[in-house]
Design a protein around this nucleic acid. Structure first.
Lengths: 218, 218
DNA sequence: CGTATAATTATTCAAATGTATAACTACTGA
DNA sequence: TCAGTAGTTATACATTTGAATAATTATACG
């Protein structure tokens, strides 16, 4: 009767591996079906490791939630930051990144929803959510302001915040819709719908976000 | 040692009572914490009744989900139908009803999110979701078309559907945001933000939805 | 007022779950 | 090459869980 062969991983690698296994299990089986044993099996380790790396199952799940939120925001933010061009193009790119792969993923939406469902009644989840929301809203405000300025639209702090809230709502809503109802209409439409809708929300001239001039044309 | 005194309820009353207890428990403790025993206690009955009225715990939870979805849509729909006035006012009222009490409730959003998280991997939840989504989108399309016509805007079936999708995304997103982040900004702003944003999305003249003329003024 | 019956309670059971602890082994450094 | 150690496995355990069954009783009906 030989023991299972195993490999030692660095602290970071093992933790990440366990968090990712956690996310897979929560997505597939929900919080109630994501048992320590199943998560351990997904990560190809035994259940005892959970306690070793995280104090408890709940702690591991919370950490995985924060990991997910960070990933989602970072992807969209990076996408905007790596874009060459004026404010319009950067906002456009940020918007599109939210409803495009890899962020537009049924698994990620499922996960996000599952966790959101706990925010109201679990203070620790609430804290993670609040922090992520604040960061996302700040990013959005920072992208919106220069666009409004460039188009000579009102751009007070209050107005920017209001726009950011509405935009964030639109993004979240379409992101969920798009991932959950992939059969009902083409996901390829989503980025266009979002960008055009955002254009209208901000009161920009038609085409300023949806048909941006290339850098050369400017 | 006397037994617990109990009252016999009609089939409908008992089922509704159990479904509502289920929703309370799922909201408070999540799907994993909503045990048969807890739900039974919430409904002030013993656990055996669950099996009697629903084949299993899972069946009861599914039924409760469908019950919730129906309630949400009905509330918004009724609100619009009971509104006197032109197409603008009806759409306005429908929109506002989605981000106003009783639909704007942290518990309902939590519930909704929790269930949405299961849609992707559970075909039975998916069916309930799809049906509810379809119904909501149809309602929205039917409200949007006459508004576009009245304002002499393009209103082909394709355009109406596209608008309905974007509006639905906006509604869902703001609904969630508003319920989850009540601390960050006043919930009283939500209906206005939604109506103004919808106005822009549909390309309507400013004020046509957000500052509707009263019936007398028309 | 009595009786049938189905709604409800009370109890039981096997399986699953989170956690705790002990045993083992892959890797590190000398 | 060889210990030492910490990462990892294996096992054990008390609790909880969903479900099944038996025992009671509220209510409708004649």
């Amino acid at each position: 009767m030989s023991r299972k062969a195993f490999q030692r991983l660095s602290l970071d690698d093992r933790r990440r591996s366990l968090m990712e296994a956690t996310l897979v299990c929560v997505a597939q089986h929900g919080l109630h079906g994501a048992t320590v044993r199943r998560i351990a099996e997904e990560a190809d380790v035994t259940a005892g490791l959970v306690r070793h790396y995280f104090g408890s199952k709940d702690e591991m799940i919370r950490t995985a939630y924060a990991y997910l939120v960070g990933q989602l925001t970072a992807r969209a933010s990076d996408s905007a930051r790596q874009t060459e061009g004026d404010a319009d193009r950067q906002l456009r790119q940020f918007l599109r990144a939210n409803v495009t792969l890899p962020n537009l993923s049924e698994q990620k939406v499922s996960l996000w929803a599952t966790f959101i469902g706990r925010v109201r009644y679990d203070p620790q989840f609430a804290e993670i959510h609040r922090e992520g929301y604040r960061e996302f809203l700040n990013l959005l405000e920072a992208l919106v302001e220069p666009v409004l300025m460039a188009h000579k639209r009102p751009h007070s702090a209050t107005i920017c915040k209001r726009h950011a809230i509405a935009l964030n709502g639109l993004i979240d809503g379409l992101w969920m819709e798009g991932s959950l109802n992939s059969g009902l209409y083409s996901q390829a439409l989503l980025p266009d719908i979002l960008v055009e809708a955002s254009e209208r929300l901000l009161g920009l001239p038609p085409g300023s976000l949806s048909k941006p001039r290339t850098t050369q044309e400017q």
